[in-house]
Design a protein around this nucleic acid. Sequence first.
DNA 1: AGTTATACCCGGACGC
DNA 2: TGCGTCCGGGTATAAC
Length: 267
Amino acid sequence: MPELPEMETYKQLLAPRILHLPIEDVIVNRAKSINVEIDFFRQELLHHAIVSIERRAKHLLFTLDSGLVLLLHLMLGGSMFYGTHSPNRSAQVVLNFGEYSLFFIGLRLGYLHLHTSSEINRLLAKLGPEPLNAPFTIKQFLHIMQGRKSTLKATLVDQSVISGIGNCYSDEICFEAGLLPARKINTLNEEEQSRLFQAMRTLLLEAIHYGGYMDSPLYIGDHLTGQFDARCSVYDREGEPCVRCGNPLIKDQVSAKKCFYCLRCQH
DNA sequence: AGTTATACCCGGACGC
DNA sequence: TGCGTCCGGGTATAAC
């Protein structure tokens, strides 16, 4: 499922392609994917343009020239494609920009909702800090971790603690930090907490650099998206040899989440 | 504050 | 191959 690095990649690849282009057609094939009447949705988008794309946690925010905002969450299995035709499955929502269209695909629990900016602020108010934003320092990280009793796994994927990390990157971060996902936060010493902070930054930055781990390209000729998959160390690699020690990787359940790790390299 | 359960949704994996 | 069944997984919400 798309997490912070995947959404960041979408943002970076999409912005130079669609910003300021008038939306020439809007197709909604699945009413449940949006939050307003289809006619109203079309009316507010047709002949308008997207003037900025921002990422907040796992959401993308497309701001229109009217000030209204499209809030996208891909949840599980959602993706986007920019081209002349939908790549495989039929798209739930399509925005046409003339020659090319942006296809929103696989929106099941995912959505593309239209909101005013004040609604957006209210909806996203409970999200924790962005792990890569400049103000997020080791000091703030230690403060956030202070007194927490739950597992590393549960904490990393909790969007109200730190935003944007999901099941894949939480496992990768734990591996990078040499810490077991089942460890309780309050058992981490200061050196381990520092390692966790560094691992989180390093891993997310590297994942963004390599276009995330999801494999479907945004457009024909997109060779960036998904390159990080080859660099994932543990996620979905049950039984494969650990890249560090060769021991078979373990699949487990931690805090009700599927979870992968190396028993020899993580403590 | 934490944990657990439930609903949401349907493509795809699995069983026969 | 084909048809039926059921699972997964992020999030919101409720209950304990």
